[in-house]
Amino acid sequence: MSDTTAVAAHGVPDDHGAHHPRLQHHFDTLDQQLYASTFGMWVFLVTEVLFFGGLFMAYIVYRIWYPEMFVHASSHLNITLGAINTAVLIGSSLTMAYAVNSAQRGASPKEQVFWLLSTMGLGSVFLGIKVIEYADKFKHHLVPGPNFHFEDPAYQATAQIYYSLYFALTGLHATHMIVGIVIMAVIVRMAAKGNFDAKWYTPVEIMGLYWHFVDLVWIFLFPLLYLIGGAH
């Protein structure tokens, strides 16, 4: 049996001399390679769900224990800023989806870079608003610790639990955004060099999954941390 027939039987194109430069030798096709990478990213996201899940579990236990305290403590969050940030993050998910789409279509590097930079920009706006919110909490002594001061002395002790959860959850979320923006800077560079085309765009795809996941976490954080007071 000639070499060519053996290779063809494994589903590799006959012109295997003209492999895509990004196809690694242990994969048969670019499609299989993308599937492996995508699957790996989804497995990572499973660990992320459980990473945040531990904190959400703590939130559930404390909210069951101190329902009134949660209403009072959360009333010091700025719902307007939280809602604006939600919109900003959803917008960044849209530009991220367009960034992946532009790479998949093999659009010009200029277009790919535009959507990636838009996503980074919106992500930075989100973090900027978060800085304003955090600064406000420091100013009003709402950071757990010796300087914590809550207007209603009945909740002086327990409100610190709420703010510990607030800083842990939003802090872990913001850390994920910072990591995402840094990685995206590398991908912008690759896109600018014209590395991505309709056949190979794996890094943009993986970046997209990560970015949408970060959006996903915020979709739950916003109502659970900011919108409790309305029930009061």
Partner: peptide
């Protein structure tokens, strides 16, 4: 099966 899924831009919007 393939992980290569190209979405529709109007759907995204």
């Amino acid at each position: 099966m393939s992980a290569h899924v190209v979405g529709n831009r109007f759907t995204y919007f």
